[in-house]
Design a protein around this nucleic acid. Structure first.
Length: 311
DNA sequence: CAGAGCTCCTGAGCGC
DNA sequence: TGCGCTCAGGAGCTCT
């Protein structure tokens, strides 16, 4: 799926259209994309229709949009439209009535703050992604729950959807606690790649950026996290931050047709990859051919010479 | 309770 | 042209 840089590219693309917009129409082509919405399609429509979207927030790979429903009941809890792209999700902004996109599962037509009618389209081949409406709950610490630079001050900035509340802060979060994550690494006997992919340890990293960060830090994917020196753990987190920042700046990685920004365009980070998808090509550091191991039902790309498993 | 493995699901691309 | 196989960037659940 889209990982942090791709989701952030989507978030930044959605925000200007959706912030302050009003939901005018909802079309559900495939209700399986609402599997994480407990009330089902009819409840989803009833809650969202006429609601104001207050902002677009991201933590890790989760996106949410706090909403003010049309029919606000007194004392009602604050709700948000929560989205996850899974492995193949896209969120596009199209002019109302634009030609349909393949595999569109849900279309939410909104009237923007500027009075323009646009369609927010949720597209998903494999149906691992989803949209849902969920309750917002207080974020521990009373700090901003996620990234939303467009909104300076709002009560919901410190709230997080219940279904995303277990997700740790991501490495680009202003409140990301590097020392705490290093301490978590020290307690993990699992291979470091598995730990990097665990969204409860730190969030936002998927298969591509895990492979890239491990290549940069010269670590084997199966090296137990706890076996790394403190300095190596810190170096790895530095690599992760640098790679994620660089990828955000490039608009994310488009490895195939699955990831697109809100205009349906590809990102440019793919040209910067050193390990992922480079199987058989020479390592840019030492020249040895990059290897791909089958690992956890997916691929792990690494340089067998630079990234050796240490005893 | 930490850790390993499985599973949900569909479509694109490739080789024969 | 068509069939069958392989592949895919996630995350939650279940069992040990």
């Amino acid at each position: 799926m889209p990982e942090l840089p791709e989701v952030e590219t989507v978030r930044a693309g959605l925000a200007p259209f959706l912030t302050g917009s009003i939901v005018r129409n909802i079309t559900i082509f495939d209700s399986r994309s609402l599997k994480r919405h407990p009330g089902g399609p009819s409840d989803f429509e009833a809650t969202l229709l006429g609601a104001e979207i207050e902002g677009v927030v991201r933590r890790g790979k989760f996106l949410w949009m706090p909403i003010r429903p049309n029919l606000q009941k007194s004392g009602e809890i604050h709700l948000a439209l929560v989205g996850h792209l899974g492995m193949s999700g896209q969120m596009l902004i199209r002019e109302a009535g634009a030609p349909e996109d393949k595999l569109t599962r849900i279309v939410i037509t909104v009237e923007t703050k500027a009075g323009e009618m646009v369609e927010f389209r949720f597209i998903d081949q494999r149906l691992f992604g989803s949209l849902a409406i969920d309750e917002l709950v207080p974020c521990p610490g009373g700090q901003r729950a996620g990234f939303c630079p467009e909104v300076a001050d709002a009560q919901w900035l410190n709230l997080i959807p219940a279904q995303a509340a277990h997700i740790s802060r991501d490495p680009l979060d202003e409140h990301f606690d590097t020392a705490a994550v290093i301490a978590k690494f020290a307690k993990k006997q699992s291979g470091i790649k598995r730990v990097l992919l665990d969204q409860q340890t730190l969030s936002g990293i998927g298969n591509i950026y895990a492979d890239e960060a491990l290549w940069r830090t010269k670590l084997h994917y199966d090296q137990p996290a706890a076996s790394l020196s403190r300095a190596k753990k810190a170096e790895l987190l530095d690599s992760v931050k640098e790679i994620l920042r660089a990828a955000v700046a490039e608009g994310g990685t488009s490895f195939d047709e699955q990831y697109k920004n809100v205009n349906g365009e590809s990102g440019y980070f793919a040209v910067s990859l050193n390990a992922y998808g480079m199987t058989g090509l020479p390592c840019k550091r030492c020249g040895a051919p990059i290897k791909r191991d089958s690992w956890m039902n997916r691929g792990s790309h690494f340089c067998p010479k630079c990234q050796k498993l240490k005893p």
